[in-house]
Structure formats: structure tokens, C-alpha cells
């Protein structure tokens, strides 16, 4: 970072990114906890995760307030302006990730009342992949590493593929045994939530790239989620 003539200004900018990363750290912890609550059927952990989401919301307000104050009082230009704008965008993405993690935990609470479904293992793998994207993209932000951001942006496709195969698997599962429809529907939503978390990580990656380089990622955005067009043939599935 270049030195600012007004020292307090540089300090305020740094405080903004510190707060944002603290918020990101909370989201990481929340997502990890939600995945664990799901795979280990841990109700207490799920409840704690649901309750802790409020903290992320508080952070969002703080970051926004701080960013707005910076804009109003310092009228930043160039890279500073991009940094403030990035903070505003990223914090809303992180807040959404927090919400999704909370939703995962809520569904874990419901699933834990039912018989264990074998597919939750596949979901926790998917969750860990999402967690990794989130970690990498936050690291890219703090290190101002556009290449890492680009790598995250590209690997979201893998998460989409995991989601596609899980989607088909769950559909087949429900056709085979209608008693599992209740649990499997929740699992479908969980998978969708994890896929959404990957999308938010991709958004953050785009923002980070813009913040560092001042340019938008020019490639075509990889779009791997094809479930909106997926159809599983009933007879085919039941005969498998």
C-alpha cells in the first residue's frame, strides 16, 4: 500500500479490510461448523451455528457504515476507491454465505431427527470444497493476489459438477424409496445452498480481481450447474 499523507486515512482503510476479514473468518468458521453438524449429526453444534449468524450480520453493518464514512469524508480515488467499493460488495457476499451456512445448520437439525441417509458424506465433501474456495478467495483478498482470485473463479466449476452428480443421485434415490423423499428434499436444498456458496465465492473472486487490477475478469464465466435442465427418467432410474 502506498503511504497516505494523512496517516489516519491509511489507517481507516486498513481497519476496513481488517473488519472485513474478521467477518470472513467468522463465515469460514460458521460454514465449517455447519458441515460438521451435518456429517456428525451434532444438534448442539447446529444450534450454536444458527445463533452465531447474528454476529456476521452485525459485522456487515459495521463494515458498511465504515465504508460509507470513508467515502463521504475522504472521497477516495483510484485504487483506494476500488478498495472501498470492493469491501461493500464483498461484505454482502460474505453475509449471504453466513445466511446459507445458517440455513444448512437448520436443515441439519431437521435431518438429525430422521434416519441417517448415506449421501450426507458426499455433501460434506462438497461442503469442504466450498469451504476451500472461501478460504482461498479471502486469502486472495488480503494478499491482493489476482492470480489466486482467478484460480478460485475457475474452480467453482468443479463444485458445480459435484452438485450435478449429487442432484441426479438424490433424484434416483427418491424414486427408489419414496420414504426418503422428506430427507432427500432437505439434502437437495443443502446441496443447492453449497453450490450457492461457491457462486458467492466466485463473486468475491471477481471483486478481488477488479480491486487489484482495475479490470474485470474477461473470460466467459464458467457455468457448470446444469440441474435446471436435468431430468431423470423414472423407468430408467428404477430399473437401475
Amino acid at each position: 500500500m502506498t503511504e497516505h499523507t494523512v496517516k489516519a486515512y491509511g489507517h481507516e482503510l486498513e481497519e476496513l479490510s481488517t473488519k472485513l476479514m474478521q467477518m470472513g473468518g467468522l463465515a469460514e468458521a460458521q460454514l465449517a461448523a455447519a458441515i460438521e453438524a451435518l456429517s456428525k449429526r451434532d444438534n448442539a453444534l447446529a444450534e450454536r451455528t444458527v445463533a452465531a449468524d447474528a454476529q456476521i450480520d452485525d459485522f456487515e453493518h459495521e463494515v458498511e457504515d465504515q465504508a460509507v464514512r470513508l467515502l463521504a469524508l475522504r472521497q477516495p480515488l483510484g485504487s483506494d476507491l476500488r478498495e472501498v467499493l470492493a469491501a461493500i460488495k464483498i461484505c454482502s457476499d460474505i453475509e449471504r454465505i453466513g445466511d446459507l451456512a445458517k440455513n444448512l445448520s437448520k436443515r441439519a437439525l431437521v435431518l438429525n431427527r430422521e434416519r441417517p441417509v448415506p449421501l450426507t458424506q458426499g455433501l460434506s465433501r462438497m461442503g469442504l470444497f466450498g469451504l476451500r474456495l472461501l478460504k482461498d478467495v479471502l486469502d486472495a483478498y488480503i494478499r491482493k493476489d489476482a492470480a489466486l482470485a482467478l484460480a478460485v473463479w475457475r474452480s467453482d466449476e468443479e463444485l458445480d459438477e459435484l452438485y450435478n452428480s449429487l442432484f441426479r443421485e438424490l433424484l434416483t434415490y427418491m424414486m427408489e424409496d419414496p420414504r426418503t423423499i422428506g430427507s432427500c428434499t432437505h439434502l437437495l436444498f443443502i446441496a443447492k445452498n453449497l453450490e450457492r456458496i461457491g457462486d458467492h465465492a466466485t463473486n468475491i473472486a471477481e471483486t478481488v480481481h477488479f480491486m487489484v487490477d482495475g479490470t474485470y475478469i474477461s473470460d466467459q464465466r464458467p457455468k457448470g450447474d446444469v440441474t435446471s435442465e436435468t431430468k431423470v427418467d423414472y423407468t430408467l432410474a428404477t430399473n437401475q
Partner: peptide
């Protein structure tokens, strides 16, 4: 950097 930004374990 501030430790909390790099080592983000709440």
C-alpha cells in the same frame, strides 16, 4: 498485516 486478517480463526 493484522493477524486477524491472515489467520482467520475467530
Amino acid at each position: 498485516k493484522v493477524i486477524g486478517t491472515v489467520f482467520r480463526r475467530p
